[in-house]
Amino acid sequence: MITVLLVLHFFVAAALIGVVLLQRSEGGGLGIGSSQGMGNFMTGRGTANLLTRATGVLAAIFMALALALGLLNQGTGRQRSIFDAPPPSAAPGTAPAGAAGTAPAAPSLPALPPAPAVPTN
């Protein structure tokens, strides 16, 4: 069920992007939505009304699908965020370093030779 909704959500998002790009903006946009591209089928105003309504309908469907997917995933035992997962290096069932109340030992650094003296004038 969730997979079907995700695929439908993807197609609605792609259609919404396409319809928004077809609309004529004040700067001209792509210019595809003008009456010149439609031939004699629709006037410029009719095309603009159609694209505006299509945008509104697709946006409503997009929001409804997003809410439905959110509600369906709420009750599952799936991880909600990538931050909820343990780090990939930690094996399941083992405590991370420092979790037992002891701090991990700091790595020892090799001793550096003394800095050379800088002559002053």
Rank of each mutant, 00 (worst) to 15 (best):
A59H: 06
V12K: 03
D84A: 15
L65P: 03
G29C: 06
L21A: 10
A95T: 08
A111E: 06
H9T: 03
T3Y: 10
V7W: 07
L8N: 09
P87R: 03
L30M: 12
G70T: 15
M63H: 01
N49F: 12
P114F: 10
G37P: 01
A117R: 01
T55I: 10
S81L: 09
P107E: 00
A111Q: 04
R80D: 14
F10D: 01
A66F: 12
Q36N: 04
T102D: 09
L6V: 08
T120S: 11
R78M: 10
M1G: 12
R80F: 13
G29L: 02
G28A: 03
G44S: 13
L21G: 02
A85V: 13
G98T: 00
H9Q: 12
T94N: 12
I17G: 10
G93T: 08
Q23E: 09
L58W: 10
A66R: 02
L67Y: 08
S89V: 14
T76Q: 08
A105C: 02
V57P: 09
P96L: 11
S108T: 15
T76H: 08
G28N: 06
G93P: 04
P119A: 12
L30C: 07
P96I: 11
A90C: 13
A91Y: 03
D84P: 00
A103V: 03
G46Y: 05
L50M: 12
H9A: 15
D84K: 00
A64G: 05
I32F: 15
L51H: 05
M42Y: 13
L51Y: 09
V57Q: 06
P119N: 03
P86E: 04
P87W: 05
I82Y: 00
T102C: 04
A54R: 01
A111N: 04
T120R: 06
L69A: 04
V118D: 09
L71W: 07
Q79E: 06
D84H: 07
A54M: 11
A117K: 00
A85N: 06
G31R: 04
E26A: 14
L67A: 14
F62T: 07
E26D: 13
A60I: 15
A14S: 07
L112D: 10
G93I: 02
R45Y: 13
A105R: 00
N73V: 11
